[in-house]
Amino acid sequence: MEQKTVVDLVTKGKRIDERGLESYRPIQIQVGLIEKANGSAQVYLGKSKVLAGIKIETGEPFPDTPEEGVLTVNAELVPLASPSFEMGPPSEAAIELSRVVDRGIRESKAIDLKSLVIQKGKKVQVVYVDVYVLDHDGNLIDAASMAALAALANSKVAKMEMKGDEVIEKGGHHQLPLNNHPVAVTFAKIDKTIVVDPSLEEEQVMSARLTVTIDKNGHLCAMQKGGLYGFIPDELKRAVNLAVAKAAENRAKVMAAAKG
């Protein structure tokens, strides 16, 4: 019954929570809630709630990139967030979520990995982005993408140096330098209509999903289609252009919140 209502409304250009087809739910961002993390941010996207924590530790570079630090993104669909999340190894959905968030940050070159080298080929800073989904009411990709960006923009790195063979703290911190600010914008196709920022009720009836991640220059840096159906080319082109506008709006909110 409810599923039919969601679809009927969308075909009439309306949504179950009375938003416009191209409107986001309210976005609230808080930074710095986790004192023991180098950076953190919590994002409410409507009733969806995602916490991202950044840990920056000393480690070794990958052998094929001796002059770069390391970026690792992980997402956890914590069982407390939804009756559909289960304990155990990461699900396909969790892996996809972390890889889509990772792709946006990595491909936009948001983090200057070269600046994270302590000693070439031996010691580098490793940036761990851990996304923790706390309440799942749909569109976790966008919530996670904004949480990750806000947390990175809020991160401080300890100054390090080599003393002999050991890495020691020089004392003091500096802001983690960010070169780019990627923001994901997700669309759902419901019947023949495309809506932005699908809620959980809408995700349950959507036939396909599209995420477009836009960098601060208005360029695409990542895309991901999901769901059991597809899109026609006109829908894709419209979504991409709309994503550029929506990403700019959401980026402004994230960066304003990160400044505190």
Partner: peptide
């Protein structure tokens, strides 16, 4: 069907 059923992207592209 003119239907795109896989679409991914990484890197840097203008619209």
């Amino acid at each position: 069907m003119g239907l795109v059923t896989l679409l991914q992207m990484d890197g840097n592209l203008t619209t």
